[in-house]
Computed example of a mutant assay.
Amino acid sequence: MDMVIVSSIGAIGMAIFAMFLRMKAAKKPASAKKIILPPIFMSTGALMFIFPYFRVTALEILEALLVGMLFSILLIKTSKFEIRDNQIYLKRSKAFLLILIGLLILRIAGKLVLSSYIDLGQLGGMFWILAFGMIVPWRVAMYLNYRKLQRELSLAEIKRL
């Protein structure tokens, strides 16, 4: 149970960091690189599955992926871009912060409940899969929306010429 509490405190710290980054990112123009890199960096976490302690069953993989993909819908709905000063910016969203806090609370509650039924290593693996299953669809949707606005900017530039 101590490890569950420690990891929950770590999750709270990461959530605060993510909220800070999101607010800061809204002040600078978006780029494809800024959208694509986070899931690539996160993918290195899959190396945990080299160790038997973190391995999960096929059913646990499916469950975690489905929950992550469902949660991604909330992030997709609250991540919108806008064109300002002929550049693409991520719109600030108060709902995004509330959703992120809500997802964090659900994650901690789920971890507390599931830790009595599932080994901590497996649980860590499942929550990594959940997070990866959430970030990939979200970032793909963001990238597609970003590219759409990029095309609009390009067409507007062509029309100006």
Rank of each mutant, 00 (worst) to 15 (best):
Q87V: 02
L65G: 05
S115L: 05
G124F: 10
W128D: 01
F71C: 09
I35A: 05
G102A: 09
K111M: 13
D85E: 14
R147C: 04
I40Y: 02
L123F: 02
F17A: 09
M69C: 12
L37E: 06
M23H: 06
P39M: 09
L114G: 01
I40D: 03
M126R: 02
M42L: 15
A15P: 00
G110K: 04
L65W: 07
V6R: 13
F41I: 15
G124I: 09
L70M: 10
I129M: 04
L103D: 03
S8L: 05
K91D: 00
M1V: 11
P38A: 12
M142W: 01
S154V: 10
P137E: 09
G125W: 00
M3S: 14
L161P: 00
F96E: 01
E60Q: 15
V113H: 14
P29C: 11
Q122M: 03
G125T: 01
R139I: 13
S31R: 07
I50G: 08
F127N: 07
G68L: 02
P38L: 10
I9Q: 10
G13A: 14
L21D: 11
L70P: 00
G125K: 00
L120T: 12
W128P: 08
R107W: 04
L149S: 00
R160V: 08
L144A: 07
S43R: 07
G133T: 13
I105Q: 05
M23W: 07
R55P: 00
S43V: 05
A25T: 12
A46M: 14
L112E: 14
I83H: 11
I40G: 04
D2N: 08
M14E: 06
L66A: 14
M14N: 05
S8M: 04
F17R: 08
K111R: 14
K148Y: 12
F51Q: 10
A11L: 15
L97P: 01
R147E: 02
G68K: 03
G68A: 07
I105A: 13
R139C: 07
L106D: 05
L65K: 10
L103A: 03
G10A: 15
A109L: 15
R107P: 00
I135A: 10
M1A: 11
P52L: 01
V113E: 13
I99N: 01
I50P: 02
I12V: 14
Q122W: 01
S116A: 15
K94H: 02
A30Y: 04
R107A: 02
E63W: 13
G133D: 10
R139A: 12
K148T: 14
E157L: 14
R160W: 09
I9H: 09
M14K: 03
S7D: 12
A64C: 07
I99C: 09
R151D: 04
L149R: 09
K80W: 02
A26V: 04
I50K: 07
L21H: 06
E63N: 07
A95S: 11
I35S: 11
S116E: 15
T44S: 15
L74Q: 10
Y143C: 03
L144I: 11
W138A: 06
